[in-house]
Amino acid sequence: MEQNPVIQIEELSKVYTVNEREAGLVAAMRSLVKRKTRDVNAVDAISFSVGEGEIVGFLGPNGAGKTTTLKMLSGLLHPTGGSATVLGFRPWERNRDYLRRMTLVMGQRNQLVWDIPVIDTFELNRAVYRIPEEQYRPVVEELTELLELEPLLRKPTRNLSLGERMKCEIAAALLHRPSVLFLDEPTIGLDVTMQRRIRRFITDYNQRTGATVILTSHYMADVEALCKRVIVIHHGKLLYDGELTGLADRFAPFKTVEVKLQNGLDGRPLAQYGELMAHSEGRITLRIPKVDTAAVTGRLLADLDVADLTVQDPPIEDVIEHVFSQSPSPLDAPDPQKIQSE
């Protein structure tokens, strides 16, 4: 789709062999000698490509295979099948020239050294990445300003709050000016203000450097603010790859209709119109199948004393939840839209 994709993945798969142990002492003893194993398809033949400078949201519930995919792309895991190239490199060969141009941030894990001041961890990374002094100074100054790190740099990591630590984590990961960023839940556990600040920073970095970003997050606000394009995976399979706005069209076969009534309900049942989502003081929210929207709104207007009526796409959280609860059924039916986008 792009002329020069930075990341290209074809039929990428990862099968884990996990040990299975039955409950109980005897079974535990038996497993010491012979272990039962089971194959788990963590990532199942997914294909996509990402163009230079894109920010792509990578969505899926816990255990969907997001982190496994990011680990393969950052060279930590060998795939069981398929191929991937990032910046022209095969990630798991761990070519130094590749590693120097990418970075991995994991919201749940720390790379900052616990006991030493943040600036000293930066110093270690400077040495590891062989960043020349004349390049290092301005980068640190810039990151310090953008992320407001000034008061934090001299503190040991262990004295920082979660949000402060995450800001420093991100700065430490960007000292070498990577052109590909893999951000695995960079805002996890942060308060709304801090989430917003980090989002703004990621947009900023992307615009200034033209870096390509793949981001996973459970916060839809992150995805909505950052990503025009999303890739949804579930049970290791690719469910959707396209515009964020198209997600609702594709997966949510319903609309949300909000009605404000002049005289309340007068005890009339609402079930005949659609699924009642919320109801408070003359304001009701209904979920209505997309195909019936026109008909039902017509009936609503005819039957009730409507003061106001709005028809909306459901919030993105609901769509995502809907996708994950009904899948993998969307895959079973051949989907013209998916074939088109490929």
Partner: peptide, 18 residues
């Protein structure tokens, strides 16, 4: 144990030395 070894392995330097 904690999975933070990943940060050492994504560095452009010999992992054993690091």
């Amino acid at each position: 144990r904690q999975g933070t070894l990943d940060f050492k392995l994504t560095k452009p330097a010999d992992s054993q030395v690091l």
